[in-house]
Each structure stands twice: as C-alpha cells, then as structure tokens.
Computed example of a mutant assay.
Amino acid sequence: MENLLLLHGALGAATTLEAIKDKLQGQFNVYTLDFSGHGGRLISPEPFSMTLFSQDILNLMEQEGIEQTHIFGYSMGGYAALTFALQNPERVRSIFTLATKFAWSPEAAAKEAKLLDPEKIELKVPQFAETLRNRHAPQDWKELMHKTAEMMQHLGQKPPLNPQNLPSLHLPVQVAVGDRDSMVGLEETLWAYRLLANARLLVLPDTKHPLELVPVERLVNEILTFTKAAI
C-alpha cells in the first residue's frame, strides 16, 4: 500500500486531521505528525521555520521507515510539504495542498502576524483561546502563537518558495483553494500553479479557509482522485 502523510496548519495539530485520516485508512498507510511545538510537543528555543518543520517531516519518515510518501498539507502544512520536497524530492510521490498561502511579502506577513495576538484573542474569542490551550497542552499556546507570528515575519522577508526554485519541482502537485477563502486568494494559488512544472489546480466551491468547514467526504474524494492519478 502507498504511504500518505497528512500535515496540519499553523496553530493546528495532528488531531485536527483525524477525521480525514480515519476515512483514508485502508486506502493508504496514513501518517500524521505534530510539528515542533504543536499538539503538546516541546517548544524548543529554536525559531519556527520551514527548515525546522521540514526536519520534522524527515525525522518522522526515518523513524517510521518510510522511503517515499504522498503528502496532503493544509495551509502551512502545504507550504512545509513543498519546502520539504524541494530538499528531498526523491522522498515524495505527490503533494496536495489546500488553502496554502503563497503570497508572502513584508506587508502580507505584518498583516497576518498582527492577527496572532494572544491577549486580544483571549479577550475577544475566549472559546478559540480555550481550544488552543487544550490542543497544545502542556505547552503554552501563547508562546506558540508568538513564535508562529515571528515565523510569518521571516517568511515575508525571505519566502522559501519562490519563482527560482518552484519550477525545479517536477513531482505531481495539486494546489487547492476554497472560492470563499478570506485568508488565501485565488491569484496567489494560481501563481504557484503556474510556476510548478507538473501541477493541477482545484477550486472548491462554497468553501472557506477553516479546515473544519471543508466537507470531509468531498476532500477525501479529491485526495483519492489526485493521488491515484499520480501513482
């Protein structure tokens, strides 16, 4: 059976992918991971970065004895998947990204990072703050958020995915975005699609950014259709 690795988004955890994992078991050997500092994993003093998260992917594959895998990456997970594939193309069979933000600039990063204010979130959206507290316990979700904001600032200064390196990636990639995604635009998704040598574009109708709002059955069917075509 083929391998499939599911990667969560910023401030997410492997638990956010359980419904998708459950539906795909039996079709693939399905794996998930918590990126460093997420889902209760130790928050190291090292800054969050795509390099760090790529190493997380490599570590998991080495630990599980995975030579090659398909990857589904939601939001930040898709960005990490592509970064990993650029460094380790022989380890990746295909990549399916959903709601991945590609348009990183100093201005875009500042806008995104401004939203990651733990104190404001705790005050204005206490239910979300409690979700993050439980999701990342025993780690401090506020520290996690600060480190994520810092990572976004670095992405804005020097995006790891750019017009120079994306065309060198020849494995099958499907970039997907919801038509009602207020965080990730169609234009930036098209930008990545046009640069990638072997890409497909998928626009999901009536779909917003949060993963929990994407119908699981629809997403699973799209993953199956794409990965089977890539085999």
Rank of each mutant, 00 (worst) to 15 (best):
E143M: 12
A10C: 10
L195Q: 14
E119P: 01
T51S: 14
T69F: 13
S54M: 06
Q25M: 11
S75Q: 07
L98K: 04
V175W: 03
N165D: 08
L166D: 07
Q174L: 13
L161V: 03
Q55M: 08
N198E: 03
P210S: 02
E150N: 13
G185S: 15
F48V: 01
R91Y: 09
A149H: 00
M183P: 00
H154P: 00
L82R: 13
P106F: 04
A80G: 02
Y79T: 01
Q157D: 12
K208H: 06
H170G: 07
A230Y: 08
Q25N: 12
M152V: 02
G73H: 12
Q27L: 08
N221E: 15
K111W: 10
M151W: 12
A108D: 05
N162H: 11
V214C: 01
N29I: 05
V184C: 04
P172N: 09
E112C: 11
N162C: 05
D181G: 07
K124S: 06
E67N: 15
S182V: 12
K120I: 03
K124G: 02
S54T: 10
R91W: 08
L11H: 09
L5W: 10
G39L: 07
Q139D: 04
F48L: 07
I66H: 11
V184G: 07
K208C: 06
E150V: 03
P45A: 09
R135E: 00
Y193R: 06
I231Q: 14
D22S: 14
T97D: 03
I57E: 08
L190N: 13
Q68I: 11
H70I: 05
S36T: 15
A14L: 06
D181C: 00
S49D: 12
A137E: 08
A85M: 11
P126G: 11
D206N: 14
A176N: 03
L166I: 12
F84P: 09
V30E: 05
Q174H: 05
M152P: 01
Q68N: 14
M183Q: 14
E119V: 14
V92C: 10
L82T: 03
F226I: 07
A110P: 09
E107I: 07
V173M: 01
T51P: 00
L186K: 12
Q174M: 14
H70D: 12
G39R: 03
P138M: 02
A108M: 11
N59D: 15
D179K: 01
M1L: 07
A103P: 01
S182Q: 14
I95A: 10
L169R: 11
A192W: 06
R93N: 15
I223R: 09
S94Y: 12
